[in-house]
């Protein structure tokens, strides 16, 4: 499903070139549960951003569903992000002035879905995430766990086949974190490809496939046998 071949990503810092990713080759099948671990600056977030089409590699080929997505126009990339990829962030990134319901509706708005359908689908999704009574609350009126659940509802509202989570439990207490992880894993069990970037070894070990990165390279790729 996801195929990265010889991916490089270098940044210009002053007069120095820093390689955030160097010759990364990675194939991820549909429905996999993958964690990416490694120290800060090892390139795990950069990798996630490239998979999520938020960043363009300086070299190499990235195929999503057998389609080279590195050369797409901005408009086409936006469409791929909208339809195929869901993001969950450490900082939730909810729009503070919008209610939970409106936040969940934003991706549907961007794809031009009619407002009545948007409301209906967003409401149903929020109910599924146990937030039926919080729809008209603004993010500031919600707890961290609730905010992350709103963010998850937003990430999954377009039913993307791939879900990318960058430290999804980083800003949460243990109980809320466990809850969010449970929800992510339930989505994975229903067939969604789940990629989690984390510092937390406990979270990372839960994945069936565990990547370890150092200095922009994958130095370990362990698949747990069931």
């Amino acid at each position: 499903m996801i195929s990265l071949a010889g991916i490089d990503r270098s940044f210009q810092v002053g007069d120095q070139t820093v390689d955030a990713l160097a010759d990364v080759n990675l194939d991820i099948g549909a429905g996999e549960y993958l964690s990416i671990m490694g120290p800060s600056g090892s390139g795990k977030s950069t990798l996630l951003n490239i998979v999520g089409l938020l960043d363009r590699p300086t070299g190499g080929v990235y195929k999503l569903d057998n389609r080279d997505v590195t050369r797409l126009t901005d408009e086409e990339q936006a469409r791929v992000r909208r339809e195929k990829i869901g993001f969950v962030f450490q900082a939730f990134h909810l729009v503070p002035r919008l209610t939970a319901l409106e936040n969940v509706s934003v991706p549907m708005m961007l794809s031009g879905i009619a407002i009545s359908e948007r409301r209906q689908r967003a409401a149903k999704s929020l109910e599924d995430y146990g937030l039926g009574d919080r729809m008209d609350h603004r993010p500031s009126q919600l707890s961290g766990g609730q905010r992350q659940r709103v963010a998850m509802a937003r990430a999954t509202i377009m039913h993307p086949p791939v879900l990318l989570a960058d430290e999804p439990t980083g800003n949460l207490d243990r109980a809320s974190g466990r809850e969010v992880v449970g929800l992510l894993e339930r989505l994975n069990a229903s067939g969604v490809t789940l990629i989690v970037v984390t510092h937390d070894p406990e979270l990372g070990r839960r994945a069936r496939r565990q990547l370890h990165m150092v200095d922009g390279r994958i130095n370990a790729d362990n698949v747990l046998q069931k």
């Binding site: 901005d74 993001f87 962030f89 990134h93 934003v106």
Partner: peptide, 12 residues
């Protein structure tokens, strides 16, 4: 950034 991540194009 978020709008872009959830699928907004530059034009939008």
């Amino acid at each position: 950034g978020l709008l872009k991540a959830i699928g907004a194009s530059r034009r939008q």
